Simulated assay, not measured.
Amino acid sequence: MAETIGVEVVYALKDRQEIASVNLPKGATIKDAVEASGLMEKYPEISLEKTGNKVGIYAKLAPLTTEVRDRDRIEIYRPLIADPKEVRRKRAKEGKVMKKGGGEADTDEGAASE
């Protein structure tokens, strides 16, 4: 009897995520998992073509030919709406200041006394 593994295939939508649990034979690939999940039929915008959706395992990009392991979480990524580099360029051109972190960087608290 062939050994099987269980994986989750996840597709994040704007307001929720779809999760499909599938059992596959050992040695299956990411492509096999996505096809077995049924998510491509439910969401026709998903494409595994070269210019289609990127995929990964636990937030790390991976090719479709990557062999999956038991309990892997295969993620199907949606395309970016805006290029982050282009957004930064536009803000800089408009003279808007971008802040790093969540608070003020120029505080006297914790500064060494003279």
Rank of each mutant, 00 (worst) to 15 (best):
24 L>D: 03
104 E>C: 12
17 Q>V: 02
105 A>G: 12
22 V>P: 05
77 Y>A: 09
89 R>E: 14
38 G>W: 11
19 I>C: 05
21 S>N: 07
28 A>N: 09
1 M>V: 02
103 G>R: 11
63 P>E: 07
16 R>G: 00
100 K>G: 11
89 R>S: 08
14 K>E: 15
68 V>E: 02
106 D>R: 07
48 L>F: 12
11 Y>S: 10
48 L>D: 14
101 G>Q: 01
111 A>Q: 15
23 N>M: 06
101 G>A: 06
94 E>W: 02
8 E>P: 00
21 S>Q: 08
42 K>E: 15
69 R>K: 06
107 T>H: 05
13 L>V: 08
105 A>F: 10
16 R>C: 10
9 V>I: 11
5 I>N: 04
50 K>W: 12
6 G>N: 11
47 S>N: 14
21 S>A: 06
73 R>M: 09
38 G>S: 11
1 M>D: 01
8 E>G: 02
74 I>L: 06
96 K>F: 06
43 Y>N: 15
113 S>A: 03
33 A>Q: 03
14 K>T: 15
3 E>M: 03
17 Q>I: 02
104 E>Q: 10
19 I>D: 06
38 G>K: 10
83 D>P: 00
86 E>T: 15
8 E>F: 11
66 T>R: 06
11 Y>M: 09
38 G>Y: 11
16 R>V: 00
94 E>H: 05
1 M>R: 04
69 R>T: 03
105 A>N: 11
52 G>H: 08
81 I>L: 06
8 E>D: 15
24 L>E: 03
58 Y>D: 09
96 K>A: 03
17 Q>D: 00
44 P>T: 14
69 R>H: 01
32 D>C: 08
60 K>N: 10
36 A>H: 01
95 G>A: 02
51 T>K: 09
40 M>S: 00
15 D>F: 04
24 L>I: 05
48 L>M: 13
86 E>Y: 11
79 P>T: 01
104 E>G: 09
53 N>R: 10
79 P>I: 01
29 T>F: 10
112 A>Q: 04
98 M>K: 05
88 R>W: 12
104 E>K: 12
79 P>L: 00
93 K>S: 04
29 T>W: 10
93 K>P: 01
83 D>H: 10
12 A>W: 06
78 R>Y: 06
98 M>G: 01
29 T>C: 11
30 I>T: 14
76 I>T: 14
16 R>K: 13
103 G>V: 09
92 A>H: 12
97 V>E: 07
11 Y>K: 07
92 A>Q: 14
54 K>V: 07
7 V>T: 08
111 A>S: 15
92 A>I: 01
16 R>Y: 09
36 A>W: 04
109 E>Q: 12
5 I>W: 04
111 A>T: 14
95 G>R: 02
39 L>Y: 04
80 L>H: 03
24 L>P: 05
110 G>K: 05
8 E>A: 14
29 T>D: 08
87 V>S: 13
90 K>Y: 12
